[in-house]
Amino acid sequence: MTEALISVQNVVKRYGDVGAAVAGVSFDVPRGTIVALLGPSGCGKTTTLRLIAGLETPNSGAIWLEGRKVAGDGAWVPPEARRVGMVFQDGALFPHLTVAQNIAFPLNKRNGRGRVEELLDLVGMRGYGERYPHQLSGGQQQRVALARALAPEPSVVLLDEPFSRLDAALRVSLREDVRAIVKRTGATTIFVTHDQEEALSIADVVVVMFDGRAVQVGAPQEIYTRPATRAIATFVGEANLLPGVATGAVAESALGRVILATPQHGPVDIMVRPEAIELRAVREGRAQIERIRYFGHDQSLHLRLHGGGELDVRSLPRPDLRVGQEVDVFVRGVVVAYPSV
């Protein structure tokens, strides 16, 4: 607990008697990392964030910030005393204040001015200080909201689906900027998202949440390539789940023999990502191409396996892959297997 800046231990939050929004979540966040709380809507990720901010009180469990217990077992530190910056989904910029006044809101009057300019620079909004929030675009509003959250130099910054109201292109560029900005300030950051691509691309650590629980915590690569359950596998990306029989380090399936990430025995479902499959056009192979969806930069192929079952594959556009073509299938790298139920 000493090296973790944020520690969430068995936190439970119930609203009325309609079950728990957060049903015992635990995770630690080391100093300076960017953490994504990833999950479908209603999984309790926003509630978890608000519990850390101090905007909700947990029913049980405890939360530590910088080694100080801020909630749990009678301890309670109100949000204004937690030194936590927060960026809300809608930005929550004060409509009656200018951009500069918004950023200066949490600052002391004395050292305010220079700091505001510095922050406007940091988020790339120099020259916008005198505008009012309603004169800014959605992306600009979120930049200002981030600057305001960073103004008092908090050790923790929380972002609640900060990009969800922006269009796709803006979202990608803004999230890259946000990552660079919080990395530069060295603030420990937690952000909530339901977009797996967003979580995987900017987080150092991803916490996957289902039904009020943290079901897996790990680096993005680990979450994507070694998902702990079938549900996580299909939530964080496209996944082919095929029946097979494991004998130690290998398994037999409709794709032939595959190498398992961890040794297992007996009937299993193996999980193969579409882009981990290579195809070779042959006269008679393991599968036939049924459908091709062309995206430009790549394409998605739907295959029928002669051994039974279907398979989704991603590949670069290739002239030899056409609907009706027989193909042979090769799996790159190791695969994850889950015991069959």
């Binding site: 204004e80 005393a81 809608d90 009656h96 008092p152 929380l158």
Partner: peptide
């Protein structure tokens, strides 16, 4: 007045009574 405005002010170190005075009242004015 969106609740998130008041919450934002709280996370910035402003006590509830001052939040009402500095945020809620001016926005609702």
């Amino acid at each position: 007045v969106a609740p998130s405005l008041e919450e934002a002010a709280r996370t910035m170190g402003v006590a509830p009574a001052r939040v009402f005075w500095r945020v809620t009242l001016p926005v609702a004015a």
